[in-house]
């Protein structure tokens, strides 16, 4: 199958300084990719530039598409969790169907099924008529993920989707993502929780100072050397029957 996202030599500069420096990778259907790296490594910039939301050099297959085609190809979940008006949860999730609705059309049976499925995946069945702004921060985050899921795009791009969720919701969200990948879609999500990233992602991209310094299966890239160099962490990675287990021990000074 053809790649869902193809990035070649993508560079974003802030003034002279490159924030993303010649990033090159492709994402194929079936992959659940974790984008990891310390604060300021350029993860958000990379994702936004890949979508064509900011000016960049190099090539991104998504940025080359028309706005409408891109919205059908990739759903984007920004880090800032914005819900401007006290709308009902169901209506908010319905916004994810916008790219599929011709102008002036109302959501049909297919849209309603997508919305119900997205709500169910995020454990939000029963929340439909609650006001989104009156929910807790973690619940709002789940509603916004459901919105992106309702878009039913082949690729889901999420910027720190699990930050601020309770542990069960974090795991449930990543399980949802890896299920999406198993269904033939693909996910790329920036993450800070390395143990969860190692456990649920099929592939990890490590970013450091704007560059992609490692790209591969979690057990191959999460080496003790890489952890010390990029994350300044003293840590151990155990290979277990449940996948690699990451255990931080201290900070490298």
């Amino acid at each position: 199958m053809s790649a869902l996202l193809e990035i070649r030599d993508l560079t974003v500069r802030r003034g002279e300084c490159p924030v993303v420096d010649h990033a090159t990778f492709t994402i194929a259907p079936g992959e659940c990719v974790g984008l990891i790296g310390p604060n300021g490594a350029g993860k958000t910039t990379l994702l936004r530039a890949a979508l064509g939301l900011m000016s960049h050099e190099g090539r991104s297959s998504l940025a080359a598409l028309s706005a409408r085609a891109r919205a059908r190809q990739a759903a984007w979940l920004p880090q800032a969790r914005e819900i401007a008006w006290p709308v009902e949860v169901e209506r908010l999730v319905t916004l994810g169907r916008l790219p599929h609705l011709p102008w002036g059309h109302r959501p049909g049976a297919v849209d309603r099924a997508a919305i119900a499925a997205a709500l169910a995946r995020m454990g939000l069945t029963g929340f439909e008529s609650r006001r989104a702004t009156e929910l807790s921060g973690g619940e709002q985050a789940r509603v916004l993920i459901a919105r992106a899921l309702a878009q039913e795009s082949p690729l889901l791009m999420a910027d720190e989707p699990i930050a601020g969720l309770d542990p069960a919701a974090q795991i449930a969200t990543l399980e949802t993502f890896s299920n999406l990948a198993r269904e033939g879609r693909a996910v790329i999500a920036s993450l800070h929780d390395l143990s969860l990233a190692a456990r649920y992602c099929s592939r990890l991209l490590i970013m450091d100072k704007g560059r992609i310094v490692a790209d591969g299966r979690p057990e191959d890239v999460l080496t003790e050397d890489a952890l010390a160099r990029v994350f300044h962490l003293r840590a151990r990675v155990h290979a277990t029957a449940d996948g690699p287990l990451f255990q931080p021990l201290g900070v490298v000074t």
Binding site: R48, L51, L53, A67, R68, R70, A71, A74, A75, W76, L77, P78, A80, E82, I83, A84, W85, V87, L92, L95, G96, L98, P99, W103, L144, R147, Q151
Partner: peptide
């Protein structure tokens, strides 16, 4: 349509084709 999408913020709205 665009204003509805903006409920989710400028970035999300733009990524949805607005």
């Amino acid at each position: 349509r665009g204003l509805d999408a903006l409920t989710l913020g400028e970035d999300a709205a733009e990524a949805m084709g607005v």
